[in-house]
Write a protein that binds this DNA or RNA. Structure first.
Lengths: 232, 232
DNA sequence: CCAATAGTGTCTATGAGACATTATAGT
DNA sequence: ACTATAATGTCTCATAGACACTATTGG
């Protein structure tokens, strides 16, 4: 019961490094990819790492703000979906000393990413990762599990698509993230309709091709973060 | 791109206080309760708070170890279920300065808690909370949402029960956490059987009363952290 | 025998999966 | 007309919910 020191900056315990990491994910060539940057200095110089940096206690309102700022500074992007993942900590994950990193994950449409075209980024399929700095291979693993797990009962896959999409695109996105047997197109339409999460663009817009034009849809604004009781 | 300082302990950014908090929950009088301790010093002295303390960078192997150590030191308990909840951070949540707290939640059988009978603890129903120190009212809210959400498709409610329990006790525990309409006893038996998570005590044991004796069950060791595809 | 709860069996309505059919563009 | 995919409709089987029924103890 002696743990109520007056100050955390006392010399009783070693100082702790506090950082924030963001695993940025996108869907490219029908595969989930993670965005990394090659480190240009510090520990693990020359090695790819997730997007991350120090907490700025003087300017960040909190962890979410720190993650958004870091992502913006390093890629120029504001991710439509960004959430806290897990906080990783320990004496060995950073050679500079004991560290705590608030891990996040973010999703972005691959077209938005390619239009922004941030400097120095690389993209790897999540199951063909090279060795990453710090504990970032572990962070990717945890993030992918979370994404796969949550995709089945939430609107999370929508954030890997453009704002306007066809139902077929949406179905394929769910299929690619969830793996397993592809969903029957007819049944997918019925289910997504029951869930009441999408609406037709008004006035109607169509995506044409060598087929019957597909009506474009968007997510219903009030259902952007919907979580379902049942699985897709 | 200037965030790759050589040292986190440089004077460029204010130092950050790192703590760990544990919301300890139990089921008492058919209501979910949270355990708090009245603070005997420091900020918010005299106010009830979740179980928490500073990270000990010299001894804790990581956040999970820090949470377990804090819980053990302050209550003498080793919780059968303890998981990371969310990391709360910001300039105002602790009057001592900018702080990051790795929030956890733990579940324990009320009988184990009462047998241990830790000093200085209080228990409140989660919907009749007094004002707590720091952002602990928020932490309880987040934890309760998580518990309610996850209970429906996991074995989480088992950790609020003794090691050996009747199916009726298990059903009532799920009912109490999930709220809503109580589950039909017959249907609950069928579902819990399909999920393959419990087994009869061997040799059979019974809980007697003014009724037909109820067979005692336990969770299957290999299914302790099972997550289901569907809802109970 | 009665009260009380444990535990089993059965009917039905809902809804998911499988699959057939129709619609509408480009070539 | 043909191809390709969008979009709708229908059949069937599995299962969740409702509820009736039987079992076994203490009093």
């Amino acid at each position: 019961m002696k743990t109520t020191d007056k100050s955390a900056t006392s010399k009783e315990y070693p100082a702790i490094i506090v950082t924030v990491d963001v695993g940025l994910f996108t869907l490219k060539h029908e595969q989930l990819h993670v965005v990394v940057q090659v480190r240009d200095k510090g520990p693990f110089e020359g090695m790819p790492a997730l997007i991350g940096g120090f907490f700025h206690a003087n300017e960040d309102k909190g962890g979410f703000a720190a993650a958004n700022r870091t992502l913006l500074e390093k890629t120029g992007l504001v991710a439509p979906y960004l959430d806290q993942l897990y906080t990783f900590s320990g004496p060995d994950r950073d050679p500079r000393g004991y560290s705590v990193s608030i891990g996040h994950f973010a999703l972005v449409d691959v077209h938005v990413l390619e239009r922004q075209n941030p400097k120095n980024i690389l993209m790897f399929p999540v199951d063909e990762l090279p060795q990453l700095a710090f504990d970032h291979n572990l962070q990717v693993k945890v993030a992918v599990d979370r994404i796969r797990g949550k995709a089945g009962y939430s609107t999370l896959p929508f954030y890997l698509l453009p704002e306007e999409f066809t139902i077929t695109q949406l179905r394929k996105t769910y299929d690619q993230i969830l793996g397993g047997k592809p969903e029957n197109p007819s049944n997918f339409r019925r289910k997504i309709g029951q869930l009441d999460v999408i609406e037709e663009i008004d006035p109607p817009k169509y995506q044409t091709g060598v087929q019957r034009p597909a009506k474009l849809h968007r997510i219903r604004p009030d259902r952007r973060l919907a979580v379902f009781n049942r699985t897709i």
